[in-house]
């Protein structure tokens, strides 16, 4: 189910402005890849280009290749909607649909895609499975029909993860999923990522270097030469190498806190 992504020569633009330049990266299947780097270096932009969410922003466009299991995601006839069904995303701020109950939030993707009608029992199973997958089931099983906004911030974020995994994507992108959460909720989500790794390929953007060191197998360091310059992937390696013995000086400075 999980898939390998190869990125080559990827340039990302906002209108005329080149935000990210020349990224080559291999994201292995069933691993957690962390992207770190200072603010504004293009980590989030790069992440959003992996499931074609970047082009939702007016003027957003991309050149280069993103290949998932032999298929170019930016190929001529590729429908971004199909890409996003394969590659799910969790955002920085929890964003459950305010008009929907917890239950409806989880099945929102399945229901709104509406490719086929599911029976009530199938939906019930899917909700339980997804909420269990997101470590939220025990906390909400008695109030599935309360609004999603009635949950705490950490629970809302796990609800968003449940919603994302309910559509059975192959890859899960997480854009600073814990930056709005307290340490306990953060821990819950980090544990969850370790479990999800068995099924999904996970890419996470984080500002928290301990988090990157704790959860990820591979780490990529992005940096920017100065304002107005495009961000670049400076170095990518196993997490232990990036945090223990990086090859590039800038990486070492960043991970040891002497910079940024």
């Amino acid at each position: 189910m999980s898939k390998r992504i190869e990125v080559s020569g990827l340039d990302i633009y906002y209108g005329k402005f080149k935000a990210v330049e020349g990224v080559d990266m291999i994201i292995e299947s069933r691993t957690i890849t962390a992207l770190i780097g200072p603010s504004g270096c293009g980590k989030s932009t790069f992440l959003r280009s992996l499931n074609r969410m970047h082009e939702v922003i007016p003027g957003g466009r991309v050149t280069g290749k993103v290949v998932m299991d032999g298929e170019d995601l930016y190929g001529a006839d590729v429908d971004p909607v199909n890409v996003r069904r394969q590659i799910g995303m969790v955002f920085q701020r929890p964003n459950p649909f305010p008009t929907m109950s917890i239950y409806d939030n989880v099945i929102a993707g399945v229901k709104l895609n509406g490719r086929r009608r599911m029976k009530r029992s199938e939906l019930d199973d899917l909700v339980e499975q997804s909420l269990r997958g997101a470590n939220l089931w025990e906390e909400v099983k008695d109030r599935l029909h309360r609004p999603g906004s009635s949950l705490s911030g950490g629970q809302q974020q796990r609800l968003c993860i449940a919603r994302a995994i309910a559509v059975r994507p192959a890859v899960l992108l997480m854009d600073e999923p814990c930056s709005a959460l307290d340490p306990i909720s953060t821990l819950a989500i980090e544990d969850l990522m370790q479990e999800l790794k068995a099924e999904f390929t996970i890419v996470i953007v984080t500002h928290n270097m301990q988090q990157a060191a704790r959860v990820s197998d591979r780490t990529g360091f992005f940096n920017i030469a100065g304002t107005g310059q495009p961000g670049k992937l400076i170095e990518m390696d196993d997490t232990s190498v990036i945090f223990g013995n990086p090859k590039v000086k800038a990486t070492e400075d960043y991970v040891s806190g002497r910079f940024g």
Binding site: R84, F97, A108, N113, C160
Partner: peptide, 27 residues
Amino acid sequence: VPNELREAAYALGVPKWLTVVRVVLRT
């Protein structure tokens, strides 16, 4: 209607027109 809700729907692979009907107009 917050843009985050539109993005949440897009990221689930919901087509734009359905996002408008079921998320934006509903909200």
